[in-house]
Design a protein around this nucleic acid. Structure first.
Lengths: 255, 255
DNA sequence: CAGCCATCGCGTACGCTGTAAGGAGTTCGA
DNA sequence: TCGAACTCCTTACAGCGTACGCGATGGCTG
């Protein structure tokens, strides 16, 4: 169990943090920390222990200060998460975004997003529907749009397509992340968990009441050794989504 | 900001609550409450105030008992959420699940799911990747599978298709839910929020650095009067997903 | 019909959370 | 040199889930 944020704070203060204000000459004692140190520490904690494990005191401990000291650098936890969100969207290298056709470009971006969620599972809990846009989030949006630019689509259609892929990836990565989280918390693999859970289910399961689920569930349970196979789901679904987009682009080209 | 659960508790106790144990003759004082009353009160609170507003004390207040009394009926909060999850998947009527072709069946189920998320936004925070299956969740899985049964697909393919739709709906409904949540918390509509946020963004936004985003963003911002239009995104994406599934089913029929 | 004891409901307590308020010490600009 | 600005701290509050243990209740057994 974990906590969800973003947009909770003051957007103005978040934007200042994200884009950097030209800092006026400082008068008092030298700051012991930087905002970036705090953000990096917070990201490390959230990666390891989830958003539920992220607390101001925990971050402060890591940096050998008290919790309240952090409020000198950051207005509050919500704004800190806003900056964390933008920060993990930074890119180390600027690779081959333009290579290939639109389909391979979109697929590459979808996998990049999937991998980011896997690396930073807490991203799933950060509300990004009404995001506070930092430089890296904007850069990502720009890259995604560029992947479907020049195909004769309207701007709105480009936006909708990019949203579709982002929405699907978000939905699909949940299974994998929750599986990993369960393993971390309980020390059990999904297979082990399934082996102890399946008998419980069998006790109450009535095949006549759920005929299709009975048939499909038993085949899937045997094949996955678990109730689901998130990685396989993602692969399968991604191709279907891209097929759907392909049909749309072809129909627009014909119009 | 809210809290995420499910699977956190003891699966065995959750299963007992979900499927009902034949209760042995009770000896002590008459119970003041039933599990169902507690679950209904908890759902009402979560609907109104989000999962963050759901606390044992809050539920107890609503029912005129103390927090600790609830632990007579429910092992803990995690198991309570498990039961809440299954309960909101109950159906009032048994309508026309079989009507139409697979596409209209799947679309109807997707919209039903979308509406449920809108009615119970906290569902988005409940981890369902490793769900504790109750009768209603199983019934839903059965219905979804039945929608793609008899098309010549393998069981695994049926499972993957059903997952794909569920994942997409989950991803897509987030935008709408977060928009509604923002309005509830801040009292602002998205349009109002956008009017105050857009100038902040314009101050730091460099069109040369984000050329495609600049073009698309300005068109979309003007058209939506917001950074996005979640309802429209869902409609658009759902049709693309179904198109992708259609392509798959046709290719399988040909094989 | 008495008495046992399972069960219900409650009061208290612990360690955790985000952060408001205010005080002490440090360093720069005037 | 001295006030203003700034950093960092201690203290405190209201909230959380829930472990523990205590009285009161009331159906089953003798």
């Amino acid at each position: 169990m974990t906590t969800e944020y973003s947009g909770g704070g003051d957007p103005k203060r978040s934007m200042e943090l994200l884009w950097g204000v030209p800092d006026r000459p400082r008068r008092g004692p030298k700051p012991k920390l930087t905002v970036d140190q705090i953000v990096q520490a917070a990201i490390a904690i959230a990666d390891r222990e989830g958003l539920a494990g992220l607390s101001m005191r925990r971050v402060a401990d890591e940096l050998d200060v008290t919790a309240m000291s952090l409020y000198t650098y950051v207005p509050g936890k919500a704004e800190l998460v806003d900056v964390m969100l933008d920060t993990v969207h930074a890119r180390t290298a600027e690779p081959d975004d333009d290579r290939g056709d639109w389909r391979s470009r979109l697929e590459r971006l979808a996998r990049e997003s999937y991998d980011r969620y896997r690396r930073h599972p807490w991203l799933l809990q950060v509300a990004s529907g009404v995001p506070v846009l930092g430089p890296n989030l904007l850069a990502r949006y720009d890259r995604e749009l560029a992947a479907v630019d020049g195909l004769g689509l309207t701007e709105i259609e480009m936006d909708l397509l990019v949203n579709l892929v982002a929405d699907y990836v978000h939905g699909a990565v949940r299974g994998a992340v929750e599986t990993a989280r369960m393993r971390q918390r309980t020390g059990m693999t999904v297979e082990q968990w399934w082996q102890s859970y399946e008998p419980l289910l069998a006790q109450v399961f009535d095949p006549e009441r759920y005929p299709v689920a009975a048939r499909v569930g038993s085949v899937a349970g045997a094949e996955y050794q678990a109730p689901a196979d998130p990685a396989r789901s993602f692969e399968f679904g991604l191709h279907r989504v891209l097929d759907g987009i392909e049909a749309f682009i072809q129909s627009r080209a014909g119009a």
